[in-house]
Amino acid sequence: MSSAPMIEVSNLTKRYAGHTALAGISFSVARGEIVGLLGPNGAGKSTTMRILSCFMPATSGTVRVAGYDVFHDSEEVRRRIGYMPENNPLHNEMRVREYLKFRARLKGLGRARSRDRIDTVLQQCSLTDVSKRIIGQLSKGYRQRVGLADAIVHEPDLIILDEPTIGLDPHQIRLVRSLIKSLSGSHTVLISTHILPEVEMTCSRVMIMLGGKILASDTPDNLQSRMAGKGQIIAEIAAPVAELKTAWSQMAEVEHYDVSPSEGNFHRCALTPRDGCDLRPEIFTLVQQRGWQLRELTRNRHSLEDIYVQVTKPNEEEE
């Protein structure tokens, strides 16, 4: 059982009256992975998560979590997941510790065990100081962490977080991210977001969703290297334009170049290498040989944002 994937989704379809939210998606997530579901609003991320957490049935297809079917063995699945829905709904009238105790007991933890676990998660989520405060009076950052603490309090195998960092300030986002990263290995985490750097920093795999379909699924690095062929190299060099142009046209690895004037007597050269090779050492040697002045030499890596825009663009136009 332990070697089986944590999540197995095959041909999952969800139709609401009038529109299809998920159009037959299939994927699987191995144990210990942190997977990011990325996509614009309405792509089907939340629907996928709601079906995985047994809140909503699928129209067709099968979904298994830790080997259990979400429809037929719903209670077994729910025992193994920690789910934080979008907007993080909490009981505002309760105190933090009281709420976590309530949730831990609901999730089947005994009295002593729940006390231990609550102490642990309060510390993990830096909530110890506010454990006696009323949830309704807490700031957004604290509330979000209370939701996270609730999701992990019973040490679930699978943690499902729907937009965990939405509406947080940069400092709080860092805190939440590092918390999610610390969960990897022992837990499987599925997070959804439409914030790209989040996925880039926390996830071992990214699935890009659009219009109820999965368009791409790979590690952030692999997705980037797939695009790297088109990554440009930028060099700012103080040299006459004509000399620069001849140099680039003589360099075999340069597929395309563009030289534009910059401040002072510097020129900005944007070079597109052939086959995605790294031209920086060659450029540096050239500059040294000619005795030019160099003030910038960078490789324009494709961010996940470019990939995301590229992957989702054609379909958006179709719509």
Binding site: S53, R78, I81, M84, P85, N87, L106, G108
Partner: peptide, 14 residues
């Protein structure tokens, strides 16, 4: 309305 129904129903309660 508040959404806590979703957190309630995704715990192992019948």
């Amino acid at each position: 309305y508040s959404g806590t129904y979703e957190t309630l129903m995704t715990t192992p309660v019948s």
